[in-house]
Amino acid sequence: MFKIKIKNTTYGVSFSFFFVVALVSVCSGTQADMLFVTLMCCALHELGHLVLMTAFGSSPQEIVVYGGGIRISPDNKQLSKYHELAVLFGGAAVNFALCLLSYKANGGGFFCQVNFLLGALNLLPFRYFDGGRILALLANGKVCEFFRAVFILLSAAAMIHMILHGTVSISFAATFCFIVLSEVIY
């Protein structure tokens, strides 16, 4: 990983990011466009977090770009619970707003779909996602664990249903594996 510190923020680029860039470069036409749009939507999601973080007087301690997106680590300055909730909701709010604007402008399309799915995915109650952090701020540990377990079971049921009906989505399978691993390791 390449890292550089400018003022009080460390910026990093993981080698997995370069893999994604290489993947985009070998794809052609529509595939490359779709990957680029997806990466752009991820960046806009994180920009939503950054704007609210800055508005509440906090700044990122570290920003790392990697193959799966962007990770922002806030500085040590404590935000109030409500400001932290707003920052966590900020990314999904940007995605949902862009989805709505895209839908109103041209009836939807890929940009609309990606923003909706990205916003919804990030609100799932898993530790690694914004929704898991929101749940941890709003509920005690046992309630969080219950919701996480329910969503893992629902995801597993969806995966089994897809396997039985021959409609397995590679991206859903990869996301499911990532979620289970992050819940166990995190």
Score class of each variant (00 low, 15 high):
L98P: 10
Y186I: 05
P74S: 10
T175R: 04
A149F: 13
I72N: 00
L101A: 14
V150C: 09
G57M: 01
F151H: 06
Q78F: 10
C99R: 05
A156F: 15
L138P: 00
P74Q: 12
F151N: 07
F116S: 07
F151W: 02
A139M: 09
I160S: 08
T10E: 02
I134V: 14
V114Q: 06
I70L: 11
I4V: 15
G57S: 03
T38K: 03
S59R: 13
G108Q: 08
I63M: 04
I160L: 14
A139W: 02
S169Y: 02
I160C: 10
A158Q: 09
I152W: 00
V51S: 11
V87M: 14
A93V: 12
V21R: 03
C41Y: 10
M1E: 10
H49A: 00
L50R: 10
V180P: 06
G29D: 13
A105G: 08
K104G: 02
G12C: 07
F146I: 11
F111C: 09
V26Q: 02
V20D: 05
A139L: 12
L79Q: 02
V143F: 08
L100P: 00
V51W: 03
I72G: 00
A149Q: 09
G107A: 04
T9S: 08
L121I: 11
N106R: 14
L123E: 04
F126Q: 05
E62G: 09
A149M: 10
V24K: 11
V143R: 01
Y128A: 08
V150R: 05
S182L: 10
L138I: 03
V37N: 11
S182F: 13
D130T: 03
H49T: 01
C177W: 09
A173P: 01
A136V: 11
C41S: 14
V184D: 01
G91K: 15
G57C: 03
T38F: 12
L47Y: 12
S14P: 03
Q31R: 08
K142E: 07
S58Q: 15
M1L: 15
I170R: 08
A157N: 02
H161E: 13
Y186Q: 08
A55L: 14
L47A: 15
K81Q: 05
L50D: 11
V114H: 01
V21A: 10
Q61K: 14
C42P: 01
G57Y: 01
V51P: 12
G132T: 06
H165E: 07
L100R: 03
S25T: 10
G141Q: 07
A174I: 09
I134Y: 09
K77V: 03
V180E: 06
G108T: 10
C177L: 13
G108I: 07
F2L: 11
M40D: 03
N140S: 08
S59A: 12
G67D: 11
Y66M: 06
L52T: 08
L98W: 12
F56P: 01
A136Q: 14
I63Y: 05
L121N: 13
K104P: 00
G29T: 05
F126G: 06
K142N: 05
A149L: 13
S169L: 01
Y186V: 06
R133V: 04
G166A: 07
F129I: 04
F178M: 12
P74Y: 13
L100Y: 04
F56K: 00
Y11H: 00
A55W: 08
M162A: 15
G109P: 04
L123C: 02
P60T: 09
M53R: 13
R133M: 13
V114D: 05
C177M: 14
K77T: 06
A136K: 14
V114F: 00
